[in-house]
Each structure stands twice: as structure tokens, then as C-alpha cells.
């Protein structure tokens, strides 16, 4: 019973992070119907950014969040203007393999710079601390990550619904042509969607580094989790991404505990497979 409880709590915490990771993918997909295979690598870049800033300048890892967000934003913008813009003109296969090329590029760039080793942060406000509540142990980094992920998610959600920028993004997502007639600079909106996607996943990376190791090929794992999350929630749906993120957390943590840790990621892929085959629209897709 206690094990179930602590697994559940840990699952919820991870789920909120997954939701944040998936958010960027959902925004990009929603605005221009293109899947970013390099999304996991954006996360990896966010993690390395936070890791390097924290170790080199020996500052508190949580303070690196804005820097990671900035780097993610710039990376997203650069990807859009230097690559994706041209891919959109080509056939489906070029769009898919184009962002796929970006994924491979970033992945091996990191490999080239950092080598294949695993790195972790050892000092920080949250790192390594935990609190005991009854029988349940709450780890600070996970708790902090969950809270901050939710906060970031909430801000984006609010922004999409209540600001001019968010409304312009939504309009572009619904109908590019019509949005263009309304005087929205759709090209800029698409670039911004990539920037936003990069920024959110950059933040997620900077949070994840507080309790997870970073290595150059970590991307594919989180990319697949994000794909599964977004597919489950419905491609392009922000609310869906949140709920699906929580479900994903459950699947991974409960599966890891009760079926076997070596199979927990196979469960993610299986979920993705089942969702797209049985209900391709996802829970909240349109």
C-alpha cells in the first residue's frame, strides 16, 4: 500500500514534467502540422545548458532556468528559419526526414563535444534532499520539478487563451490563410511557435537535470515519451497534453514498479502504438 502510494506520487510528479515536455511538441504540431523529431534533442540541449551553467559558474541550478529557456527559444527560432521553413514546401517524406536530420545532428554534436558519458549535478538547493511524510518519502527535486512544471504549463496555457499573441497563434493553427487575411504575420507566428516549443522544453530540461543524468543520446527516449503523450492527448491539444502527461507518468512508474524496470519504456512505445492504432485522434484531438 505504501509502495503504491509513493509510486503514485512519483508518477504524478514525473507526469507533470512529461506534460511540459509534450507541450512544446503539441504547440509546434498544432500551429503547422509538422512533427519535430528533434524535440528530445532540444530537451538534451536544455539539460546540458543548465548543467554547464550551473557547474562552470557554480550557481544554483534553479537559477539556470531562464538561461535554458532562452537557449531553447533561440534554438527553436533558428531551426525554423534555417530549416523548417524550407521543409514545409517539400513532400511529407522531406518534412519527416528533415527534422529527423536535425535530431541526428544535435545528438552527435553533443556526442562530439561531451563524449558518451553520463553526467549529473551534485550540488543544488533541491538536489539529494527529501522529506518524509508518514510512510511516504517525497524527494525535493521531483517535487520542485513538478511544481515548477505545472507553473510553466499554466503560464503557457493562460498565454494561449488570454493574450493577443496566444490568440494569433491559435488563429494560425486553425487556418493559416484566414489568419493571414486578418493581418496576422503567420510566418512570424510559426517561427514563434518553434521558439515557444524550444523554450518550454528547455525549461523542462533544466528541471530534469536536478534529478536525472544527462547524456548525448537521452533525446530519443524523451522524444518517444513526448510523442506518446501528444498522441494520447490528441495532436495539437494543450489540455490533452497535460492529462496525457499524467497518464504517461502513471504508465511508466507503475509499469516500472510492477512489471519490471527494464520494460518501462517498452510500455511507453506500446502505449503509443495502441493509441494510434485504436484511437488515432487521441483523447482530445481534433
Amino acid at each position: 500500500m505504501e509502495m503504491l502510494l509513493s509510486t503514485l506520487i512519483s508518477a504524478l510528479q514525473m507526469g507533470m514534467l512529461f506534460a511540459l515536455v509534450a507541450l512544446g511538441l503539441a504547440i509546434i504540431f498544432g500551429v503547422m502540422n509538422i512533427v519535430n523529431f528533434a524535440h528530445g534533442e532540444f530537451l538534451m540541449v536544455g539539460m546540458y545548458t543548465a548543467f554547464l551553467t550551473a557547474t562552470i559558474f557554480s550557481i544554483e541550478p534553479l537559477l539556470t532556468l531562464p538561461i535554458a529557456a532562452m537557449v531553447g527559444f533561440l534554438l527553436g527560432i533558428a531551426s525554423y528559419y534555417m530549416l523548417v521553413r524550407y521543409l514545409l514546401k517539400g513532400p511529407m517524406i522531406a518534412q519527416l526526414l528533415g527534422t529527423f536530420g536535425l535530431m541526428i545532428f544535435l545528438r552527435y554534436l553533443a556526442m562530439c563535444i561531451f563524449g558518451p558519458d553520463y553526467e549529473t549535478l551534485e550540488h543544488g538547493l533541491l538536489i539529494g534532499k527529501s522529506i518524509k511524510l508518514g510512510a511516504v518519502v517525497l524527494s525535493y527535486p521531483r517535487l520542485g520539478t513538478a511544481v515548477l512544471s505545472m507553473l510553466a504549463f499554466g503560464i503557457i496555457y493562460w498565454m494561449m487563451d488570454y493574450t493577443r499573441l496566444g490568440k494569433a497563434l491559435k488563429a494560425t493553427a486553425l487556418d493559416v490563410e484566414a489568419a493571414g487575411y486578418m493581418g496576422i504575420d503567420t510566418e512570424r507566428m510559426r517561427g514563434l511557435a518553434w521558439g515557444l516549443g524550444g523554450a518550454t522544453v528547455g525549461i523542462a530540461g533544466a528541471l530534469l537535470i536536478n534529478f536525472y543524468y544527462v547524456f548525448p543520446t537521452i533525446g530519443i527516449l524523451f522524444c518517444m515519451i513526448a510523442f506518446a503523450t501528444v498522441a494520447l492527448g490528441g495532436f495539437g491539444s494543450i489540455k490533452g497534453a497535460f492529462i496525457a502527461g499524467l497518464i504517461m507518468g502513471m504508465i511508466i512508474d507503475l509499469g516500472g514498479t510492477y512489471i519490471g524496470p527494464q520494460y518501462k519504456f517498452a510500455l511507453v512505445y506500446l502505449t503509443f502504438f495502441l493509441v494510434v492504432v485504436i484511437r488515432p485522434k487521441g483523447l482530445f484531438g481534433w
Partner: peptide, 22 residues
């Protein structure tokens, strides 16, 4: 002792090919 550069080169090629000549 340099790893990854080869894959980076293919990735560049694929990105260029996808963008300009699918």
C-alpha cells in the same frame, strides 16, 4: 578519439537534401 562527426555530416546532408532537393 573524435566521435560523432561522421553522423553530423550525414545529418547535414540529409537536412540540405530535404530542404532543397527532396
Amino acid at each position: 578519439g573524435i566521435i560523432g562527426v561522421d553522423f553530423m555530416i550525414y545529418a547535414m546532408m540529409v537536412m540540405i537534401i530535404s530542404a532543397y532537393e527532396p
